[in-house]
Design a protein around this nucleic acid. Sequence first.
RNA 1: GCCCGGGUGGCGGAAUUGGUAGACGCAGCGGACUUAAAAUCCGCCGGCCAUCGCGGCCGUGCCGGUUCAAGUCCGGCCCCGGGCACCA
Length: 868
Amino acid sequence: MQKKSRNGYVIPAGAVCFSESDTAVNPPIIMESTYAPSVIEKQAQHDWEEQQTFKAVEDPQREKFYCLAMFPYPSGKLHMGHVRNYTIGDVIARHQRMLGKNVLQPMGWDAFGLPAENAAIKNNRPPAEWTYANIDEMRSQLKLLGFGYDWDRELATCDPDYYKWEQWLFTRLMEKGLAYKKRATVNWDPVDQTVLANEQVIDGKGWRSGARVEKRDIEQWFVRITDYAQELHDSIEQLDGWPEAVRTMQRNWIGRSEGVEMEFGLEGSDETLSIYTTRPDTLMGVTYVAVAAEHPLAQQAAANNPELAAFIEECKQGGVSEAEVETMEKKGMALGLNALHPVSGDAIPLYTANFVLMSYGSGAVMAVPAHDQRDWEFAKKYGIAIKQVIFADDGSDCGVEDGAYVEQGVLKNSGEFDGLTSAEAFDAIALWMQQHDKGGIKTNFRLRDWGVSRQRYWGCPIPVINRANGESSAADEFPVRLPEDVHVDGSGSPLKRMPQFYDLGNGDRRETDTFDTFFESSWYFARYCSFDNDSAMLDERANYWLPVDQYVGGIEHAVLHLLYARFFNKLMRDEGLLKHDEPFKRLLTQGMVVAETYYRSNADGSREWFNPADVESDGDGFTLKSDGLPVSAGGVEKMSKSKNNGVDPQQLIDRYGADTVRLYTMFTAPPDQSLEWSDEGVEGAYRFLRRLWMLAANNAGLIRTAAASQDETSRDIRRDLHGVLKKALFDYERQQFNTVVSACMTLVNSLYKSDDASLLREGVGIVLQLLAPIAPHISHHLWRELGYGDDILTAGWPQVDEEALVQQQIEYVTQVNGKVRAKVQVPADADQAVIETLVLQNENVKRFIGDAQIRKIIVVPGKLVNIV
RNA sequence: GCCCGGGUGGCGGAAUUGGUAGACGCAGCGGACUUAAAAUCCGCCGGCCAUCGCGGCCGUGCCGGUUCAAGUCCGGCCCCGGGCACCA
């Protein structure tokens, strides 16, 4: 018996809980009455370390499960986004472990990157030092959160033992012709005399100098991802464990299209201009052809046309990002040259335009103003003819006076192609091109080859030697080690000033560019399997663990990182290093962690941002706690240093413990949605864990000595218990952990109403098991303390007792004309006729039917009746 | 500009995928306990109307449609977020 207050509610029993009737046989069971996370978490983590619980060992006899969360960039301290990401991963890993799988969950560091160089400039310390210090800091924070990693496999991409293998692989790609050099456009800061990342271009200006950014072509290394475009496109089909949105984004990014390639003639020349279009049916409506500003034809025409030369110069202004190119004002200028229409032979004016990209296709596009909106606007602006050749086949309005008609239809004004539908014309024109030796059907991809050269220091050196004779050859020793003792001042890569690095004698120079950091993150998932192999990139162990069964990471990686990793997997497969075709079986893209922002505007228009913790509401506005003066709310944004709206996970762990932080991040939003921070919500999560603790502490004696006896009320509670359990197990399967936590709360609430020992033992056990992946420390502790067993992680997974769910009476929601009018109790075994009779006897139902004729009665078995 | 998501109470969210809208939690209000506060426990909690506590009408960003039945499906808009190839 537990102690009860006068009104019948359980009161905390102090440090000693005992079962009065059993004291003679069993000594009182001592259990701490207050929940002290700092103590039990340290103890649980100690137990796991001592038992080597999370050490992963290959075992072909057991079903494996490889669970991976995207490794962090070591930016300083852990932020809430990390906590969320790694909690989701750990919940899945622990769940699978409890299901009996042989689980691998590793952790490492995506350690190369731009921020280390910026920090180096600011602190005047080498990037390596800053990076390794951050890794140490963040590792210890991850450990405090109790994540079940096999730390033996930890890796950092800036470690030569790691990056030497990607250097080696790159030289293999060079041998296979999959890596090549070509000129490509970068952002150039004319003042700082340095290449800028897109992120460093703000409104077309350099972030430090403020100078107008220019486009500049330089020699760079590329990897032929386009050779794999078709396979990367087709195997998206296999990725049925990925969110549909991500598969669509990847498909669109690769951008497979069927079109026609055709040769346009050039007036007064034997040369031709190759043009690709997905709308060959509009061919007879072409009224101009546009080429990129860097196109040889434009350059040529500019030679004796100063006005054109000035325009081409103007096109060089601004950054290279697609968002910038696509949103700027569309401008162009006639070259004074004509192209010749491949079919009619008519002269077509050539223009150069700032929206045509040299790096995409042939750098030339045919323009059909009548049937393309951008072409239409351009034609209106420059007084170019608009010739309609497609008309609606149902005779509906299809004029082009107010805008382009972009639908498919029937051809007119198209000579021999008149009368064909768009689809027929596609084939007819392709055939015509083929017969006249001027082109034909071609599959095109939007995807471009992967430019991997970066003119930066803190990255993996590209293992290439640039020979005195102008040729490039692969390095033959690995690693090509990046010097770590350097001074970074922002004036370009220090490697370019280090002859001891690049000067190989005889005029041979080591390449000073480094790899895109996506290079490192494209294969780390595989290296975890063969982490200690010093003689090969990968080994057989990779074929045991891979593919990754569950990958977890931010939605912002939906295209680039995931596409490059898929590509690298195929490269490694074709190198004979791996067997499987795809690296990630199942993917969970988690949402961002966001919080309210607050600011004051400075005189110069800039904003000073205040942390939400320092702001309070005064009813109709917000004030800063320190001075009581008003601040403005800036809306909910992703937690960031720049908006000063971050919450430090460390402080929360110190105050509430890791279990509360983990529980809160799982409970407050489903994993794939953005999570809005709330301090009160954390308080609520903590309250729940304390409540669970008290339930256990108050009933420890009952639970430990439970006998199998149950009364009637217990049967009802047990039915609910197993109903909720069923839902929770379903939610685990679909990875909706917020409702798993809800289920646990519901269970604890109903268990508080019972003093049936057997029910309490079963119910508390189920709650602990359901909670074990989410709040592992408290579950680990109580499982042992209440005598369920030694280790909850090896105790199996709870099962629904279907017997317990059986009901005598079922409540039918009864609608009249689709509106709920009653809830009627019906025997579980009633047939349709009985259900209808019972339902029609209900007073409220009768009232709403009145003397209306019943047309139809719809019965959804076990649930609902609708009387029409 | 292009591609992909998302809009449900005061707030975070739930609704087993077309079948009771608002589970669970936060905040708030009322009560119990306390000398008091905190903690804890109990109750109420979308809006409007009505009433003995029966009950009714409206309600899931906006407009329209399909259906016995729509938060869920279809068409058209509005707003917010993510990505756009050198941030990671």
